[in-house]
C-alpha cells in the first residue's frame, strides 16, 4: 500500500526529568509516543489538529500541541507532561486550584488546561483578565463555560504568590 516504507529510529529525550529512548517512526506524533510508547496517558487527544489543546505539554519549556510534533523533532528535547507536575503526593498549586475552584468537570481538557495555566502564570504571575483569556484560548473546554477555570487561575496565582511571599519572608528571617 505504502510507496515509502520507513523503519523506526531511536529517539532520545528527557521526560519529566528522566532520560528516555524510544524506537519509533520519525513522523510518529509526540502525542502517540507519550501515550503508547511511554504509557503517559495524561496527555489527551481531542482533535489531532492543534485546535483543542488537550494534548498540551512542555517541550523545552514552551507549551506545544504534542499532536503536531513529529517524534524526530523531539530529539534531545526536555519534555514535561502532566504526570510530572505534582511533587509526589503534593499537588502543584494549579492542580489544587482546579479542584478547589471547580475548574475541572469532565476532566478531558484538564491536563492541558492545567499546563496552559502553568505556562501563563510563569509568564504573567499576576495576569489580567485579558491575559488569562489569551493565554488559555488554545485550550478548548466544553463543560465549564470557562468561568470556573478563570477562578482556578486566580486561585492558583494567589496561592503561588503567597507561597513565594512566605519563602521570601523565610529567607529574610534567616539572613
Amino acid at each position: 500500500m505504502a510507496e515509502v516504507a520507513v523503519g523506526k529510529v531511536a529517539v532520545t529525550f528527557t521526560v519529566n526529568g528522566v532520560e528516555r529512548t524510544v524506537e519509533t517512526y520519525p513522523m510518529a506524533r509526540l502525542l502517540d509516543v507519550l501515550r503508547e510508547d511511554l504509557r503517559l496517558t495524561g496527555t489527551k487527544e481531542g482533535c489531532g489538529e492543534g485546535e483543542c489543546g488537550a494534548c498540551s505539554a512542555f517541550v523545552d519549556g514552551r507549551l506545544v500541541n504534542t499532536c503536531l510534533v513529529p517524534a524526530i523533532q523531539a530529539r534531545g528535547a526536555k519534555i514535561e507532561t502532566i504526570e510530572g507536575l505534582a511533587s509526589g503526593a503534593e499537588l502543584h498549586a494549579v492542580q489544587q486550584a482546579f479542584i478547589d475552584a471547580g475548574g475541572a468537570q469532565c476532566g478531558i481538557c484538564t491536563p492541558g488546561m492545567v499546563l496552559a495555566t502553568v505556562a501563563l502564570l510563569r509568564e504573567h504571575p499576576e495576569p489580567t483578565e485579558a491575559e488569562v483569556r489569551e493565554g488559555l484560548a488554545g485550550n478548548l473546554c466544553r463543560c465549564t463555560g470557562y468561568m470556573k477555570i478563570f477562578d482556578s487561575v486566580e486561585t492558583a496565582a494567589r496561592a503561588i504568590r503567597a507561597r513565594q511571599d512566605a519563602a521570601t519572608a523565610g529567607e529574610g528571617g534567616a539572613s
Binding site: M1, A5, Y25, M27, A28, I72, R75
Partner: peptide, 13 residues
Amino acid sequence: MRANVASYDVVAP
C-alpha cells in the same frame, strides 16, 4: 489519525 505513519520518512540534519 488517518495517515500511515510508516509511509513518511523524515530526516533532521
